[in-house]
Every structure is written in C-alpha cells, then in structure tokens.
C-alpha cells in the first residue's frame, strides 16, 4: 500500500478544471520536485492536497497513510502531517509570529492529545529553530507577514515547517523572491529536516533550489497532469531546453 497516492484526480475552481487525471505516488523519505510552466496547475495541486476550500474535486482520490483525506477539513490534514509552505503567505495583522506559532504548535499537540506547551519551553523551542534560519528575535514579535519582504516570508514558512515537523511537506515556490544567501538558508532548513520518514514535494520553476535540495524524482507538469517523470537530470535538461517540447507534446 503506497504511503501517499493521488489517483485520477480531477479538480478545479468553480468554473475551471485545472487538474485533469493527475496521478502521483510518494513514499516515505522521498523528495519529489514538480516543475512546469506558469498556469499549469502546480499551485492548485498543492492547495487541493492541503484542502483549500476554493478548489473542488470532481473525481479521483488522495490517500495518505491509508486514509482518504479529501473529505477532511484542512486543519485535520495538517494535523495528520501535511504541511504547505505557501507561495504567497498571507498577512495576519495584530497577530505576532510568536503568537501564531503558539496556536499552531498547540493545535498540533491537542490533536495528539498532548497538553499545550508552557511558555518557556515554547520560547526556547522557537528560538533555537529561528536562530538556525537567521530569524532575529525582533521579527518574532512582528505581526505575521505584515510588511515582510519575500525572503522574510519564506524564512517564516520554513520556521513553521521546522517547528511542526510534518511528514509530508509541500513547498510551493519556496525559492521565488530569494537572493542566493536566503536561498541557501532556506535550502539548509529543508535539508536538516530530511529523514527516512519525511517526504517533500517541491514545486518550482527553476532548478535553482534543486541544486541545493537533491530530489529523488522530478516531474514535469503541463495542463494539469504529469507528462514526464525522471531524476534530477530531467531538471537540468529543462533548464537548458525549456518546456517547449512538452508544451507541444
């Protein structure tokens, strides 16, 4: 029985079909990369897996750890270990990064029948991870994502991932808007989390991130489905030749 499997998935927004007969299988410990031209449905895929109510699924299924997750609300999917690093993380005015992390961590603990973490332990836990990602203390006190630069937002996404320790992390364009130093920090943040039980689904345009985070599989997605799968060499050839051959296929 596969650990994570999407079968014959058709999904889209109210008036537009975006994912069309999409199939993908991921095993524990694997790193998958999905590449493809703009507007091909990569972000939609990430959102459908995470349960964004903006999308509806017309047929197919997504099994995670033997459970059909499509009927589950987003928070339950999250608690089961699915994490989505957003391409454009949204502002939440008035709620500090620290407060948000407290809510998220304690929601996860509640799901696992654990007591909420006390303030000192929480602070300690957050600070260790934040430091590793070069996130200053001051930033933890600022309202979540309000006025953050692209790089800051991606670091905070990475911090949340590090703290929530998901089993399947879907990272949507984590490399966009990052300079080379920030990219290295974020990539390192991903690499330290890699282990035999944790899988990653990296959504990206370029192989920039992939030269720091080695994928086991690279998939080319066009018009809502995977048209070619291969190893990291596929990403390299893409960088050279572009998507043209797939678009015409």
């Amino acid at each position: 029985m596969p650990w994570f499997k999407i079968s014959n998935l058709f999904a889209g927004t109210e008036n537009k079909l975006i994912l069309s007969d999409f199939n993908l299988q991921i095993n524990p410990g694997e790193v998958h990369a999905i590449m493809g031209p703009n507007g091909t449905g990569k972000s939609s895929l990430a959102n459908v897996i995470a349960g964004n109510p903006k999308y509806s699924v017309s047929s197919g299924n997504i099994l995670f750890k033997n459970i059909d997750i499509l009927p589950l609300p987003p928070e339950q999917r999250a608690s089961m270990g699915i994490f989505l690093g957003f391409q454009n993380p949204i502002d939440i005015p008035g709620v500090s990064v620290m407060t948000f992390l407290k809510y998220a961590i304690n929601a996860q603990r509640a799901f696992n029948s654990l007591e909420p973490l006390d303030a000192p332990s929480l602070l300690k836990k957050v600070k260790i991870r934040a430091e590793a990602l070069g996130i200053p203390n001051e930033m933890l006190k600022r309202p979540l994502n309000v006025g953050f630069s692209g790089g800051e937002k991606k670091r905070i996404e990475t911090l949340q991932m590090a703290l929530l320790e998901p089993e399947l992390a879907i990272l949507d364009e984590m490399d966009s808007g990052l300079d080379i130093d920030a990219l290295k920090i974020v990539a390192n943040g991903i690499n330290v989390l890699k282990n035999n039980n944790r899988s990653f689904l990296l959504i990206t345009h370029y192989d920039r991130l992939l030269s720091y985070v080695k994928p086991n599989f690279v998939h080319i997605m066009v018009n809502g489905k995977i048209v070619r799968s291969g190893d990291e060499n596929l990403a390299k050839s893409l960088e050279k030749n572009g998507y043209t051959e797939f678009l015409n296929a």
Binding site: G51, P73, E75, F83, I90, A107, Q108, L164
Partner: peptide, 15 residues
Amino acid sequence: SEEQLFYCQQRGISA
C-alpha cells in the same frame, strides 16, 4: 478573508 482562514487551518488551527 477565506485565505487568512485557510492559512491558519493549514497550520492545524480550527476555523
């Protein structure tokens, strides 16, 4: 916004 809500829910926080 729905997006704010979804963001929180994606982190395991109930609606």
